[in-house]
Amino acid sequence: MRILVTGSAGFVGSALTERLLARGDTVLGFDNHNDYYDPSLKEARLARFAAHPAYTHLRADLAVQTAVDKAFADFQPERVVNLAAQAGVRYSLTHPHAYVQSNLVGFVNILEACRRHQVGHLVYASSSSVYGANRKMPFAVEDAVDHPVSLYAATKKSNELMAHTYSHLFGLPTTGLRFFTVYGPWGRPDMSPILFANRIVRGEPIDVYNHGQHSRDFTFIDDIVEGVIRTLDHPAAPDPSYDPVAPNPGSSAAPYRVYNIGNDEPVQLLDFIGLLEKHLGREVEKRLLPMQPGDVPDTWADVSALRRDVGYAPATSVDEGLAKFAAWYKDFYKVG
């Protein structure tokens, strides 16, 4: 298939693009290479597949409608995976306009282009952050998600609402995937695994918020990519059992779906740090601090709907995943 992947120099986008090329798809990558974190990491990810004959790369911004329109007109994608977004919960507290431009303006540009070019399926990144102040565990797509605790989360919930509108009005098949704490080789340096690894190898204390009581549904990158591909290959269809009197937030009478994609096995943050210390061969002091604004205490993905519909089955334990991450980290950052 001809597949457009936005955010193709990003963590999930680059791993997905590699897999799509390996199975024979033709891919147009779309990425603005912004400096939210070190752009050299994005260049290094891109170098893994940039020379592939079935790959074309476009450096452009989703918020620029003419750039998006031209990409669709020139490439004529059959399916689209939208992974480009302004990421980060804490950054959204101080840079709100960046999230509006990328996650809202950029997303409506994608929706409009998909509609006009009759794309067969749009898969887009949502986030576990949409569960916000919810405390029922595990988080299920049937739960209401009306109390976000960060602007980032609010934009991701908005994406789901915008996608449903296009599915309902124009019959565009859309599927949102609520990612749960993705980690692994080539990960983002603003996320906890690399932040923790940096401190461990330097022998510096680690700040652990919520006094170490956080738990997260850490999900290895390979399992995430497998789930994205399985979802991409199963375009959303109307739910024949959808009841407008008792609506299911995860489906619709329109060709619309929302799924959790996680490991379905939350891990205490202190245990995660301990495993990372083991694989990096060093222990450091942990400074226990109060919870930060915008954070949530726990995440846990109920992935039963994704298992049922596409056969999703995460297979990588946190211990195994961190061993692979640590090996990559030591090689990439030249740690002895």
Score class of each variant (00 low, 15 high):
134 N>W: 07
164 H>V: 06
291 M>T: 11
253 A>C: 09
118 Q>H: 12
95 H>G: 03
219 T>I: 06
314 P>R: 06
94 T>F: 10
219 T>P: 00
200 I>M: 02
214 H>L: 11
226 E>N: 08
135 R>G: 05
285 E>S: 10
73 A>P: 02
3 I>W: 05
172 L>P: 10
77 P>D: 03
58 L>M: 14
142 E>Q: 14
257 R>Q: 13
89 V>P: 03
281 G>M: 09
242 Y>E: 07
305 A>L: 14
54 A>V: 05
279 H>L: 01
234 H>E: 11
38 D>K: 14
258 V>S: 12
228 V>G: 01
14 S>F: 09
122 L>C: 08
298 D>L: 12
240 P>K: 04
200 I>L: 01
124 Y>M: 11
254 A>P: 11
283 E>A: 07
78 E>W: 00
246 A>V: 13
156 K>C: 05
77 P>R: 10
128 S>D: 15
185 P>W: 14
239 D>S: 14
143 D>S: 05
267 V>S: 14
197 A>D: 09
304 S>Q: 13
113 A>T: 01
18 E>H: 07
160 E>F: 06
41 L>Q: 13
113 A>F: 01
141 V>T: 14
301 A>S: 09
166 Y>L: 04
126 S>P: 12
135 R>M: 15
211 H>M: 13
108 V>E: 11
78 E>R: 11
7 G>A: 04
156 K>P: 05
264 D>W: 02
280 L>W: 04
119 V>Q: 00
171 G>A: 10
70 K>E: 13
211 H>T: 15
55 Y>H: 07
161 L>E: 12
202 R>A: 15
252 S>A: 15
134 N>I: 09
323 A>E: 12
104 L>K: 01
181 T>W: 07
197 A>H: 03
126 S>L: 15
224 I>Y: 00
